[in-house]
Amino acid sequence: MAAERALLDVQDLRVSFGEGPRARPALDGVSFSVRPGKTLAIVGESGCGKSLTALSIMRLLPTPPARITGGRILFDRGDGPALDLASADRRTMRRLRGKDIAMIFQEPMTALDPVYPIGDQIGEVLVEHEGLSRKDALARAVELLRLVGVPSPEERARQYPHEFSGGMRQRAVIAIALACEPALLIADEPTTALDVTVQAQVLRLMRDIQQRFASSILFITHDMGVVGQMADEVVVMYLGQVVEEGPVSAVLSRPAHPYSQGLIASIPTLDMPRDRVLQPISGMVPPIGSITTGCRFRTRCPHAMEICRRDPPKVTTPAGNSASCWLVEEST
């Protein structure tokens, strides 16, 4: 990991809601990097900041009330020094979005404009960023629809979003995202709204596409099964911070942080023994900004100690996970 240059390197990212003394930190020093051609998953429950992280990278935060208050988001365009998206101007971001970085949202219907044919919506990106003529853009749109597995693409390109099923709409959204062959694809719960058989199709499609275009994917999800299937590396977030990160196989089979352990122990799986009782994490996620020092998980942690009031160190286990936890520090 050391020698290779990261495509995206997020360093100590801070985002707050509100201003002055009433500002509440929603992202509190988030760091991770996405390597070229790899998939990094961010996993966590509602309010952990995973979607906020994606919106920060795209600079699509609802401002106000949210704003970036610190840190860097370094994006490597391959030529010269990496660009800091956290401080890039609007014009730079507009040129980047859809071309170098594309995003796929959970609900395809909100990402599509109901009054334009699908083909025009895919073509628009190509006219905007690649300077293609309308005619060439439409021809390329048909090719893209074929690529993402939409049957009879010539005909489908002329149809409107309401004429597409949920799975086909998400394929169309993926076609738009792929139009300019972006280096980074950010997918925020792209299959959560889909039926399970259709989810399997879309996940397979995303895998195929990644191999074909060698693109990097930042995959945001709450589903550990999806993490296991899609990602090379995983970042576990809790209350605006990264609590653990590492190779997927290590984090899923030997989670080091008590929150990751709790998360995995609370998910029923198809192969767990029938008589095993789920071990939920006690209590619930506290409101954003209510715990601002020490380990944020200590109020729910079964192993909480006095020292947990102090900010925990980041410790790397022999398996290769890095966890921010005093207990892990003690045992390694």
């Binding site: 099923s165 949920g166 799975g167 086909m168 039926d195 399970v196 058989t197 259709v198 989810q199 399997a200 199709q201 996940l203 397979r204 895998r207 589903d223 099964g225 999806v226 296991g228 299937q229 899609m230 997927v248 196989s249 899923l252 799986t269 198809l270």
Partner: peptide, 16 residues
Amino acid sequence: SVPGAEGARAVVQGEP
């Protein structure tokens, strides 16, 4: 279709 570490074994075609 249930996602997991081994990946989906087989993907059924079409939608309901």
